[in-house]
């Protein structure tokens, strides 16, 4: 038994849909991480999980707790905003790291530095 059983049917269906969509997107992102061949392709994969994958699950959590506690529980938004702001930083740094290391190693097919 979960707390979801205490919800009215329409809300339970909405929350169930959001959970399934969110977890499927996250799973697909992680699957892409395993499956794609080059690093620059793989850097796109986690954004599936951090954009709508996370948003759907956070929305499901917001709806459930808001209903159960009878007031607007929106502190999940903090995590959402944090993810929105921090994932680009990590991915950008990682992308630049990969470029930098590939250039130093002289890998073919990597664009040359923009500093001219």
């Amino acid at each position: 038994m979960t707390v979801l059983q205490g919800l009215p049917l329409w809300l339970a269906l909405l929350v169930a849909l959001l959970l399934v969509v969110g977890s499927t997107l996250t799973l697909l992102g992680a699957f892409g991480l395993v499956r794609l061949r080059s690093f620059y392709d793989r850097i796109h994969a986690p954004t599936l999980g951090t954009s709508w994958g996370a948003a759907a699950i956070l929305l499901a959590s917001i709806f459930t707790w808001s209903w159960l506690e009878g007031r607007a529980v929106v502190h999940e938004l903090v995590v959402g905003i944090l993810l929105m702001c921090t994932t680009p930083v990590t991915l950008m740094l990682l992308g630049r790291t990969a470029l930098h290391r590939n250039r130093r190693a002289g890998v073919e097919g990597v664009p040359r530095s923009l500093k001219r």
Binding site: M1, T2, L4, Q5, L7, A12, L13, V15, A16, L17, L19, V20, G22, S23, T24, T26, L27, G29, A30, F31, L33, V34, R42, G49, I57
Partner: peptide, 24 residues
């Protein structure tokens, strides 16, 4: 029992995703 299935599915999917990430 639909919400129960949804939560269970989400847990399994996320655990699998974590396993894929660990593989990487």
């Amino acid at each position: 029992s639909l919400p129960w299935f949804a939560v269970t599915y989400a847990q399994i999917a996320l655990a699998l995703a974590a396993a894929f990430a660990t593989f990487r």
